[in-house]
């Protein structure tokens, strides 16, 4: 028998979907800013493998000669990016959601199994024992750390004299700019893999991020017991071994 099971809390769904367009505006306006001093390249020995970015990219996306516009959008939307991220972290901490997000001692082994499985190098899929598997825990926690990294490197570049200690801690002005840029590339790569995984995971999983619920078959849901009303019994006893982070 099918059951409706609550998966994502409303707050997390709002944070997730607000972040998507806001991060898009931050990356777009960031590229308007980067254009004015576009010095980063990937080099191997003496040869340039890739230049960020080829002229054709700027032309296609209309990014040239818009530094002022880029700075204006960047320094306005930074507030939404910050507040949304802050709200997310606060919510996960207070609600206890962090327990299903933060990697535990099994996560790295599990992530490796997930990776092998996803690359079709391993037949058996790793046991789905919690809301997020090891790979997801690592990815979703990293993205929060990356967001924090963007925030502090951005702040260091924004006020390098007044916040000189922060700028120095990040290796200086130029270094903060490089880290800020690399983190942005990281978001783009995360986005590509994330989209691919969401497509592969299918409709039920995607729908859960919009509606908050998931439809599961059978009385068991990821190893959690379900009562007669189809509600998951809170995993107090059965999952204590799955949560070594709260053991002393």
């Amino acid at each position: 028998m099918k059951k409706i099971v609550t998966k994502h809390p409303l707050a997390i769904r709002w944070n997730h979907w607000i972040n998507f367009p806001v991060l898009a505006v931050m990356i777009w306006s960031g590229m308007l800013i980067y254009w004015a001093n576009d010095v980063y390249k990937i080099r191997l020995g003496g040869t340039i493998l890739f230049k960020f970015f080829p002229e054709s990219v700027y032309r296609a996306l209309g990014l040239s000669y818009k530094l002022a516009q880029g700075m204006a959008f960047h320094f306005v939307f930074m507030w939404i990016f910050f507040l949304n991220g802050f709200a997310y972290v606060l919510y996960t901490l207070i609600s206890g959601e962090w327990r299903s997000l933060v990697p535990n001692r099994h996560s790295f082994r599990e992530a490796w199994q997930v990776l092998l499985h996803d690359l079709h190098l391993r037949k058996a899929s790793p046991p789905a024992s919690a809301k997020y598997n090891g790979a997801q825990r690592i990815a979703y926690s990293s993205i929060i750390v990356m967001g924090f990294g963007s925030l502090v490197t951005g702040l260091a570049m924004y006020k390098p004299v007044q916040l000189h200690w922060l700028c120095a801690a990040l290796g200086g002005y130029e270094s903060a700019r490089v880290i800020h840029f690399i983190l942005t590339i990281g978001y783009c790569l995360f986005f590509l893999i994330h989209i691919l995984q969401v497509i592969l995971a299918g409709w039920n999983n995607f729908r859960a991020m919009v509606t908050g619920f998931e439809v599961v078959k059978g009385p068991e849901h990821r190893g959690m017991a379900v009562n007669e009303q189809g509600l998951v019994i809170p995993p107090e006893e059965p999952l204590t071994t799955e949560r070594p982070t709260i053991e002393k």
Binding site: Y158, K159, P160, V161, Q162, L163, H164, A168
Partner: peptide
């Protein structure tokens, strides 16, 4: 952010 401006904060 102009609150952070201080004569004590010098450019390196």
């Amino acid at each position: 952010f102009d609150k952070t401006l201080s004569d004590g904060h010098l450019a390196k």
